[in-house]
């Protein structure tokens, strides 16, 4: 069983959703990025780490800030794999998912990129701009190497399409809560989001489905009965805030994640 599946199983036993965090590799520094991962791993069940791209067409302001900050510090893809590897060495059972845009994979070479993932013990991949069915081949390659390819679903995905995507999905599906870039304000009532979520679960109740986009400390409680919730922009924002207030981002982000976890426990 994959470590991602195990993580969900563990959470289900505790009758709570999995907490999935998202941070940007190298934000605010390479060192701190690793420190944050190591520190929040105590409270998070699955960790997403983004590899950087400077034309992110689906990211909102907070994550863009983190991305540009990290790029300015010179974080490269190689650094991202290094951070991932170090994290996994410290936390071998904690699932780590890399997330990013396809051009980085394309330039690295699909096979080479997956080899790098494997060497850094990355458990899964989310590729924002490689939708189904275009991702079929790549997803197959991932599966062959026991890397989870996470399919995305959105409010615009038709039921027919959902069925096909879910059929091709691996251990985790990501439901985009609303029409938005990352970190937008939750403009849809949680009830509506859960309605859609339940539609997905109805198609296949055994698939682990997480909800992301616009989830904050305020709204996370509403999704207590889901398989998992993703929080990203809230964390990136905290890093920015900490830097502005000359505080330690590692402690502040840890506090936030701890609070988030408490809300769903």
């Amino acid at each position: 069983m994959s470590s991602i599946n195990l993580a969900f199983k563990h959470c289900k036993k505790e009758k709570r959703p999995a907490l999935i965090t998202f941070t940007v590799a190298g934000d605010n520094t390479k060192k701190n990025s690793l420190k944050i991962l190591n520190s929040i791993a105590k409270y998070a069940d699955i960790l997403e780490l983004s590899f950087l791209h400077n034309c992110p067409i689906a990211d909102g302001g907070q994550i863009q800030n983190s991305t540009y900050r990290s790029l300015r510090n010179g974080t490269t893809l190689k650094d991202t794999f290094k951070i991932a590897k170090k994290f996994k060495n410290n936390n071998p059972n904690k699932p780590l998912i890399l997330m990013g845009y396809y051009n980085l994979i394309y330039q690295n070479g699909e096979n080479n990129f997956l080899k790098n993932c494997k060497m850094s013990k990355v458990d899964g991949l989310i590729v924002v701009d490689l939708p189904w069915p275009e991702n079929k081949n790549f997803a197959k390659k991932c599966k062959k190497m026991s890397i989870n390819f996470v399919q995305l679903l959105s409010p615009t995905t038709s039921k027919e399409r959902m069925k096909k995507i879910i059929k091709d999905s691996h251990d985790m599906i990501y439901y985009i809560s609303m029409l938005s870039t990352t970190g937008g304000k939750l403009k849809v009532p949680p009830k509506k989001i859960l309605e859609n979520y339940n539609k997905i679960k109805k198609i296949n109740k055994n698939k682990n489905c997480v909800i992301g986009f616009g989830i904050t400390n305020k709204s996370i409680k509403s999704f207590k009965n889901s398989d998992g919730v993703v929080v990203g922009s809230e964390i990136c924002k905290e890093i920015t805030k900490s830097l502005n207030n000359r505080q330690n981002p590692v402690t502040n982000v840890t506090d936030i994640v701890k609070k988030l976890r408490k809300k769903i426990s």
């Binding site: 067409i57 689906a58 396809y102 924002v128 701009d129 490689l130 939708p131 189904w132 275009e134 995305l152 679903l153 959105s154 409010p155 615009t156 995905t157 038709s158 399409r161 985009i176 029409l179």
Partner: peptide
Amino acid sequence: NGFWGGKFGGSFIPETLKK
């Protein structure tokens, strides 16, 4: 898949924009 000459173009878009 939307590619000219087998490799130019396509639609590398987020799921939300597929529909």
